[in-house]
Amino acid sequence: MIRLLALLLLLPQLALAEGWPRHFPHKFGETVLEAPPTRIASLDFGGGDDLLALGVQPVTLRLWTGEGQLGVGPWAEDLLTSQPVLLRGAPDFERIAAARPDVILAFWSGITEADYAKLSRIAPVIATPAGMGDFDLPWQARARLAARALGREAEAEARISALQDRLRSLAARHPEWAGKTASIAFDWDGTPGAFLPGDVRVRPLAQLGFTTPAALTALAAPGAFSVSLSPEDLGPLEADLILWVGSASPPNQPMRRFLAARRDGREIVASAELSAALSWSSLLSLPRALDLLVPQIEAALPPDRSLP
């Protein structure tokens, strides 16, 4: 009730908050949008989701991982009604120009300064905020930045708070998760590793109450979002819950069988869809990730089970 009131109070304020032109400072300078754009090119990995969630059809989409023929994940296919230009690999400036965008969103894209200069000749480019790593924007900030560029803040705030509420209520329903450790592990071409608290995949788990094992964070270089491990010692992964992402098939790590979490059934190998949904961490993919992940965590960590 209080939340609803707060939202009602917030809504008109947001609508009044900012007119046009709008200024977007970023790591390559500042971009000004004179009016709400209508043809939005997304150069971001998984960038189509937030646009679709806000009711906008993108004119370009960047292919990444887990998307189907249409260029979006299964969680967004119903919302895509247009046929955007699908981009893969290095930014293809001509193809983007041919889509005739009036804004290019590239704040989760890894574009370089040279790319930015070329793209800016096509349309205003919104790049990663200064001081942020190319792929460090948390899902909320990503959605808010997209919303600000589109002039659809109210929709974004409603979506974000709905998702936050869901995370909060999940955490409240599972007090036993609070303070438990969880490793999000990957097998990158034979090299095992794990994601660290700064990574997008770790953030939603943290919101559910899980923490990253101290043994993993101790190995991390400052500012790193992941850490590589030796295939001979997966010990630092040991946690109350281990979630393997990145591949549908079980990771081919022989030492995996010595992990206590695996022995006790506290290990989850994410499906391709769950891995992608977590990696995309968008307004549309996160709800799907929770749909898929929560029952698996509940099965792996039953409330009555006493853990050492």
Binding site: A90, P91, T112, W188, V227
Partner: peptide, 23 residues
């Protein structure tokens, strides 16, 4: 191998030898 995934990917992109951003 030593570097993080992201840095490795940026480096691999450079190692492929692309002319796309030529000036």
């Amino acid at each position: 191998t030593h570097g993080g995934l992201r840095e490795a990917e940026t480096a691999l992109g450079w190692l492929a030898g692309s002319l796309h951003a030529a000036t």
